[in-house]
Design a protein around this nucleic acid. Structure first.
Lengths: 146, 146
DNA sequence: GTTTCATGTAACTTTATATGTTACATAATG
DNA sequence: CATTATGTAACATATAAAGTTACATGAAAC
């Protein structure tokens, strides 16, 4: 999640296109990993890719319309919580009692988190980033960490 | 977490003591795993253990005073969320912007979850379990899943 | 058209983490 | 002192995430 946003935000600072290799260097990872990540975003139309010379990845969405929750969904909505309910002995009443108590707390927290993510658009993130960049010239994607 | 509560709740139904082996069978795991789990609880005084003949684990706390949050703390407060912030390039402003946005949402969700866990005592869980058991004779810890 | 550059994707390897296991020391009881 | 239990280190296994390699596909340059 954090990594995906990092990529998207980088892309929002320059017109592109960006090759998987370029993005991979910025993220200090492998091009294939980038393609895997971007695949989900492409399916939902947030980015698109082109092959061959001059190809690569481009944003293809209105940043003010896409929330962090949308991005999360594009990743396949992986579990947000580190701990789940045991399901090894579903018939056990002890387990049912435990799951009932934990399940409600977990569900509430997850709902809140999703709601919060839904309030933040990529455009808001991008604006925040530009503020942080301040008067500074927008740094090239190659000059990472500088 | 779920597993620990399972053990504690089982223990709350019978006077004990329970050997690690007994508890391990009920949880379908290994005695050493039980001892590892219980170690944190013992340090906070929620359970205590005795060696040798007739030894084993006993509850040593007021169930109405210990919340699920306390139990969580006894486990070393492991991360509740499945995803954290990237920290690979702390100097990168993009990363800072992403972490600021995600960090707030994560912190809020975590706070809510902790708060919810703090509202539920082991006694409440135990009461709920007894209701579920209904008129049924309290099952022996050996008769798991029945 | 063929060479080059880029994505798409399957298959494999590596790494990290959690869990389970073995072995043995320590302590308490009969 | 033999037995039973915890305490804990060390090792093994299983699982999942991340990284890597290899090669097919498609698009642009020449």
């Amino acid at each position: 999640m954090s990594g995906v946003l990092h990529v998207l935000l980088h892309m929002a600072q320059q017109p592109g296109p960006f090759t998987s290799e370029t993005l991979a260097k910025a993220m200090d990872t492998n091009p294939v990993v980038i393609r895997r990540i971007m695949a989900g975003l492409r399916e939902l139309g947030y980015v698109h890719s082109e092959k061959g010379h001059g190809g690569g990845w481009k944003l293809s969405c209105d940043l003010s319309k896409v929330t962090l929750r949308d991005v999360y969904a594009a990743l396949g909505s992986p579990s947000l919580l580190a701990m789940g309910n045991r399901t090894e002995a579903p018939g056990c009443l002890v387990e049912q009692a435990v799951n009932a108590a934990l399940g409600q707390a977990f569900a509430d927290a997850e709902a809140l988190l999703l709601s919060r993510l839904g309030e933040v658009t990529l455009a808001m993130l991008s604006d925040d980033l530009r503020k942080r960049l301040g008067s500074r010239k927008i740094h090239d994607i190659g000059a990472h960490g500088a």
